[in-house]
Amino acid sequence: MRIRRVVTTRAGGSSRPPYESFNLGAGVGDDPAAVAANRNRLADELGLGRDRLVWMEQVHGRNAEIVDGPRPTAVEATDALVTTEPGLALVALCADCVPVLLADPAAGVVGAAHAGRVGARIGVLLATLRAMTEAGAALDRIEVLLGPSVCGACYEVPVAMQTDVERHLPGSACRTRGGTPGLDLRAGLWRQLADAGVAKIGVDPRCTVEDPTLFSHRREGTTGRLAAVTWLERSDAA
């Protein structure tokens, strides 16, 4: 089974400042018509039906839901999706949080998760792995991409918050570029996945704060959202 993964940038869309221009987030104050046009363009560019993208009402939680077909609206109160349905694309939206794309090609199972500080701390990725194994995946076959997010050098937090997150997500504590307490969520998630038995873990090194081609809430405040998308390619696809 062929796995497809795509991470968008902010270029090429219909949104006006401060969301310019390929904002895919529907809940950030952007013109709904522009967001709809951007989402339609995403589906068209990926060669998927416009109803084949499944979105989440991301709430910084740890609910992971298995979906088996299109949804007319975003899946409520969910920060991770899993499917075995070919041609059904799962979407995680982020603007500093870590988008995570997972797959077991042999079993034909894919997952997408939104892992911000709160979600990572309370185990959204562990919930995603459980949902994937429930759907037939095996931990030692799962492949993971940790997408672009704020890096540890840019993510300054109070020392109490750093200590709390490190206790729940070991490996995430770091020092920022300025020598202050920081969090490297991708490092903590990498360790959590490895400890869970996942052997194939890739990391997109881009920092959303440092890279102007990506959306960053920490850099800009009001801004759009990039999308990390994964799906199983249909066997009859070209």
Rank of each mutant, 00 (worst) to 15 (best):
M1H: 11
R2E: 10
I3D: 07
V6L: 07
T9V: 08
R16Y: 07
P18G: 05
P18S: 04
Y19E: 09
S21P: 01
F22K: 00
G25A: 08
A26F: 11
G29K: 00
D30N: 11
A34K: 04
E45V: 08
L46P: 00
D51W: 14
R52C: 09
L53W: 01
V54Y: 10
Q58N: 10
V59C: 12
R62H: 15
N63T: 14
V67N: 06
P70R: 05
R71F: 12
R71H: 15
P72D: 14
T73F: 12
E76H: 13
D79T: 05
V82W: 06
T84I: 15
L90W: 07
V91E: 12
V91G: 11
C97R: 03
C97I: 03
P99F: 00
L102R: 02
L102K: 06
L102S: 05
P105G: 14
V110T: 03
V110M: 12
G111T: 02
A112S: 06
A115I: 01
V118L: 14
A120M: 02
V124E: 02
L125Y: 08
L125H: 09
A127W: 10
T128H: 08
M132P: 05
M132E: 10
E134K: 15
D140Q: 06
E143L: 05
E143R: 10
L145I: 08
L145Y: 06
G152H: 12
C154L: 10
V157A: 10
V157G: 02
P158W: 11
P158S: 13
P158N: 12
M161H: 09
D164T: 10
T176G: 04
L183D: 03
L183R: 01
R186D: 01
R186A: 00
G188Y: 01
L189M: 07
A194P: 07
A196S: 12
A199D: 13
I201S: 01
G202M: 13
T208R: 07
E210C: 13
P212Q: 04
G221A: 03
G221Q: 04
R225K: 10
L232F: 07
A237L: 05
A238C: 04
A238S: 07
A238Y: 06
